[in-house]
C-alpha cells in the first residue's frame, strides 16, 4: 500500500512543479515583450517623466525576480493586479466570469460524458456492425468541424430560422437556474458536439484493446456470458484509459470555451482573454492564462491520480 502513496505524492509534486514552471514562463514571456511596458501603454507621446512615474506605480523599477514572487503571491490570494486598459482590479473582472465559464463547461460535461461513454461501450460491443460504422463516420465528421462552424449552424437553425433559443447568451448570476440553462443551451450543445466524438472513439478503442487480451478469451472459454465478460473482466481493466479520456476532454472543455464564448458573446473567461490579447492587456492575459493552465493541469492531475488508483496492479503492490 505504501507504494501507491509514493506514486500519488510524486504526481502531486510534479503537478505543482509544472504549474510553477508555467507561471514563471508566463511571467518571463511578458518580461521579454519588445519595448518597455509602461512606454507601450502610455504611447510614444508620453514624456520620460510620466513614463518613469508610471513605471514606479506598476512596480517595474523593482528586479524581475522580486516582482515575479509578488505576482505569484498575489495570484495565490486572488489578487492579480490591475488591468492595463481600464485600470480596474483584475480579480473583479475574473470572479463572475470564471463562474460562468465553469458553469458552461459543467453543463456541456453533464451531457457529453454519459452520452460518449454509452455510445463508446455500445460501439465496442457491436463492433463492425452498421451501428458501429455509423458512429465512426459521424464521429469523424464531428471531430473535423471547426467549433465556430458548428456554433453558427446551430444559431442559423435554432435561433434565426426556428427562433427556439437565443443566439446571444448574455447571462448574469441573478437569473433563475432554468433561465441560465435556456440561455446557455446553444453554446453548451456546440461544445457537446465537439467533444462527444473524440471521447466516444477513445472509449471504444480502450475497450476493444482490452477485449483482445488472452484473459478475455479465457473468460469466454470458461463459458461466461457476454455481459459478464464485459462488466467483470473487461471494464476493471479498461477503467484507467477511460478515466484518462474523460479528464482530457474535461480539460479541453474548459479551454475550448474560448471560441464558443466569442461566438455567443457569452460573458466568460474566454471572451475576456481574447479581448485582452487583441488589446495587448498583458496583465489580464497573464492572469487568465494562469487560470486556464492551472485548470488544465489540475484536471490532468486528477486523471493521473484516478488511473493510478484504478490500476489493480499498483493498488495491490508487487508480490
Amino acid at each position: 500500500m505504501s507504494r501507491i502513496w509514493v506514486l500519488l505524492g510524486e504526481r502531486l509534486a510534479l503537478g505543482v512543479v509544472t504549474l510553477i514552471a508555467i507561471s514563471a514562463l508566463i511571467f518571463l514571456g511578458v518580461e521579454l515583450l519588445p519595448g518597455d511596458l509602461a512606454q507601450q501603454i502610455l504611447g510614444q507621446s508620453a514624456t520620460p517623466e510620466t513614463v518613469e512615474a508610471f513605471r514606479r506605480e506598476l512596480g517595474l523599477d523593482q528586479p524581475a525576480v522580486q516582482r515575479y514572487f509578488q505576482w505569484l503571491a498575489g495570484a495565490l490570494h486572488g489578487d492579480f493586479g490591475n488591468s492595463l486598459s481600464n485600470n480596474r482590479p483584475i480579480s473583479e473582472l475574473l470572479s463572475a466570469r470564471l463562474g460562468n465559464t465553469l458553469f458552461l463547461a459543467s453543463f456541456a460535461a453533464a451531457i457529453s460524458i454519459p452520452l460518449a461513454l454509452t455510445l463508446g461501450v455500445l460501439a465496442a460491443l457491436y463492433r463492425n456492425s452498421v451501428f458501429d460504422r455509423l458512429c465512426n463516420v459521424v464521429a469523424l465528421v464531428c471531430v473535423s468541424l471547426p467549433e465556430f462552424f458548428v456554433a453558427y449552424v446551430l444559431i442559423l437553425f435554432f435561433s434565426v430560422r426556428m427562433a427556439l433559443f437565443p443566439s446571444l447568451s448574455n447571462i448574469d448570476a441573478a437569473m433563475p437556474f432554468g433561465e441560465l440553462l435556456y440561455r446557455s443551451f446553444l453554446p453548451a450543445l456546440t461544445l457537446v458536439l465537439v467533444v462527444v466524438a473524440h471521447m466516444m472513439r477513445m472509449t471504444r478503442a480502450a475497450i476493444i484493446n482490452v477485449l483482445a487480451s488472452p484473459y478475455i478469451e479465457m473468460a469466454r472459454l470458461k463459458g461466461m456470458g457476454r455481459l459478464r465478460v464485459i462488466l467483470f473482466h473487461a471494464l476493471p481493466n479498461a477503467l484507467a484509459p477511460i478515466i484518462n479520456v474523460v479528464a482530457l476532454n474535461l480539460a479541453y472543455l474548459v479551454v475550448g470555451v474560448v471560441v464558443v464564448e466569442v461566438v455567443f458573446v457569452y460573458p466568460g473567461l474566454g471572451q475576456l482573454f481574447v479581448d485582452a490579447v487583441s488589446h495587448r492587456d498583458v496583465m489580464v492575459v497573464q492572469s487568465v492564462g494562469l487560470i486556464f493552465a492551472a485548470a488544465y493541469i489540475l484536471l490532468n492531475l486528477i486523471a493521473d491520480l484516478l488511473s493510478i488508483v484504478s490500476n489493480p496492479r499498483i493498488l495491490n503492490g508487487e508480490g
Binding site: T18, A251, A293, Y296
Partner: peptide, 21 residues
Amino acid sequence: IDVIMAIPSLILALMLLTIVG
C-alpha cells in the same frame, strides 16, 4: 516538451501571440 504540452495549446498560442505580436 512536457511543459509545452501541459499548457492548453490555444491558450499558449494566444499568450505567445501577445508577446510576439
